[in-house]
Nucleic acid binder design. Sequence first.
RNA 1: UCCUCGGUAGCUCAACGGUAGAGCAUCCGGCUGUUAACCGGAGGGUUGCAGGUUCAAAUCCUGCCCGAGGAGCCA
Length: 429
Amino acid sequence: MHVYIENIADYDGKKVLIKGWLHNKRSSGKVRFLLIRDGTGIVQSVIAKDEADEKIFEIADKITQESSLIITGMVRKDDRAPGGYEIIADSIEVLQMAIDYPISPKEHSIDYLLPLRHLWLRSRKQNAIMRIRHHIIKALRDFFDDQGFICADTPILTPAACEGTTTLFKVDYYDQEAYLSQSGQLYNEAAAAALGKVYCFGPTFRAEKSKTRKHLTEFWMLEPEVAFIELDGIIDLAEDMIIYMIEKVLSKSKTELNTLKRDPSKLESIKKPFPRISYKEAVEIIKKKEPDFKYGDDFGAPHEAVIGEHFDQPVFIHHFPAAIKAFYMKRDPNDESLALGVDMIGPEGYGELIGGGQREDDHDILLKRIKEYKLPEEAFQWFLDLRKFGTCPHGGFGLGLERTIAWICGIKHVRETIPFPRMLDKIYP
RNA sequence: UCCUCGGUAGCUCAACGGUAGAGCAUCCGGCUGUUAACCGGAGGGUUGCAGGUUCAAAUCCUGCCCGAGGAGCCA
């Protein structure tokens, strides 16, 4: 009976069939230990010369790392086995013998591993990260679905810049210029006015010349958008979402966090309510460590780190100077120079994980902003329509998936949080 | 685009002006409970590229190429 390794404990004393690959091999005299992985886990198989068929012992002796195989045998509980269970093999079929697998069970440089990403994914650590990625995605979707949000995905091919500021990837759309989406937000606003509460969750593209551990040129963003909501409600939503997601990861991914040597107490200590400070308060905290920082400057990575360390919790920063925020942000009715935007800075130096806020809902003011920011008015006609036909206070945010995964997993670089990272000048494999 | 660091065996690194070395991987041999197993042996090199200094360059100098980390921008 074909059994997945993650369920092996249910078959103690029974005969099973495992399909997988050879992860590693050890031997001692007349005993061979095969470590077999099938994607769900790793189990040790034991072949002793006296007990096993001569042919099987020969195969166990010759089989190489990452060869594909089918093995049958009795499951036995044994404390000496990694994972607590092992298989006494009585047959081994090698589907294909792998020759010179390039990733040995030793340390390798990132230089070497990145071009081998298609094979690197097989490693224990990468496997754990991908499993956690899956559970994070599922938790985020469940959170919104359970509250009646509708997933209304937005286009990836778009006619113009959403924000007009960041660099876009240009593509040839028949004979027109088109761009890969850098945010679904504008379309989300239309969808929210149709469906009330929506989100989109898909890849997004930024052709920035960014070369840091926090940047990918193709990354996944979850963007909820809600009609009839104001800034405080948006922050509440983001806060509840993060708490829900962390609880799910802690309950579903203990093994994987352990594989990654991620201390779960770092996540268990994340508790509601997260600090909520204004940009002005944030500036005062930053100035204590970086006296050169001036009110009106946008935060750089070191400034985000100062805020993150100061609180040791995710922090919401709101009421930014409007000058450093996007054209569609609603201004504070009490102070025209401030925008009702909010960013969430992650702890442990993971930087900005969430950016969002309340949108401008007045037609004439939005039109004025489009002109001020020198954006092509025609392209935004449909966006202005949303303010002409039943406008309402609304808003939402975008969550950077890979940065969130990096934080949860406690790994430094976002390139390991997506199966096939796309980075500056890097598009292979 | 800028700043910093790096490029030596298949991989990870050492040698820092005087015969280019180790661990792992591979191959051969040994060991009946291994835990990145261990022990013995073997093969494996245009020291990123091009110039220069020197009796002698992996090592010093110049230029170039490639990579990593960071900055700006952002999620």
